[in-house]
């Protein structure tokens, strides 16, 4: 269960977002510049909102009024950045285990996650030799192996070519079906949201424009799709 109620004024956008959801697979959907990544950053602790409160599974991560701001490293979230951000000096194997080691957790799921994300042949490779899709799969595996309470996915398929995008989307779908980790996906692509989310928060210009289940969200996309066909 995640509860977010935050406000933060940027130079060109005022973020004023409030939503709560028990969904295991939640998505934030909106155009570029709607404030989606800022919400993820606030949950992870990379952005300290000017006001508000964030609660994850009953634990307060941030509360401006109560002056609570849990350090980033203690929040127990797994953040998959749009650009992967693999550590360039570490091989894939060491990248994957980084979070588990930092949190002093045994990576009991290592073999399973390597198999689910099809990383077996990449373990000895350096990040600089990986393709965009491979890099993103490693970034997802690295975040998962830290055993987070929630996996934050920031446009994980953006910038990938069509084939790699379909491949990573397939892997994320497998993870959703086979692992029980909560996810919060940020995307501006409806097909990604429909494939990976159970519930969708619609963001528009820094505000919540609606919150619907994925079936209703899919139905909302039909006119757009048919409209774009003409």
């Amino acid at each position: 269960m995640i509860e977010v109620a935050i406000t933060h004024a940027f130079r060109d956008l005022t973020l004023d977002v409030a939503f709560a959801s028990p969904a295991r697979a939640l998505a934030l959907f909106g155009d570029s510049g709607a404030g989606k990544t800022s919400v993820l950053d606030a949950i992870a602790g990379l952005l300290e909102p000017q006001h508000g409160r964030i609660v994850l599974d009953g634990q307060c991560l941030f509360d401006h009024a109560a002056r609570v701001a849990m350090p980033v490293s203690m929040r127990d979230v797994g953040y998959v950045f749009q650009d992967g951000r693999l550590f360039p000096h570490l091989r894939v194997h060491a990248n994957l285990l980084y979070g588990a080691r930092a949190r002093r957790r045994s990576a009991t799921d290592f073999a399973r996650i390597v198999e689910l994300l099809d990383l077996g042949d990449l373990l000895d490779r350096s990040p600089s030799t990986l393709s965009g899709g491979e890099r993103q799969r490693v970034a997802i595996g690295r975040a998962l192996l830290a055993q987070p309470r929630i996996l934050l996915l920031d446009e994980p398929l953006t910038g990938l070519h069509r084939e790699a995008r379909a491949q990573v989307l397939g892997h994320l779908g497998r993870l959703k079906r086979e692992l029980r980790v909560a996810t919060l996906l940020v995307s501006h692509q409806a097909d990604e949201v429909i494939a990976l989310a159970d519930e969708v928060v619609l963001l528009r210009a820094g505000n919540v424009a609606g919150q619907v289940d994925v079936a209703a969200f899919a139905a909302m996309q039909v006119p757009r799709v048919s409209g774009s066909a003409h």
């Binding site: 490293s73 797994g78 951000r85």
Partner: peptide, 25 residues
């Protein structure tokens, strides 16, 4: 710095980030 932020989200405290990211790089 984004690599340090990534390490931080993975649970690495200041000392670990320094020893495993900043110094090797």
């Amino acid at each position: 710095r984004r690599l340090e932020r990534a390490a931080e989200t993975l649970g690495a405290g200041a000392w670990r980030r320094f020893a495993t990211i900043v110094v090797p790089l």
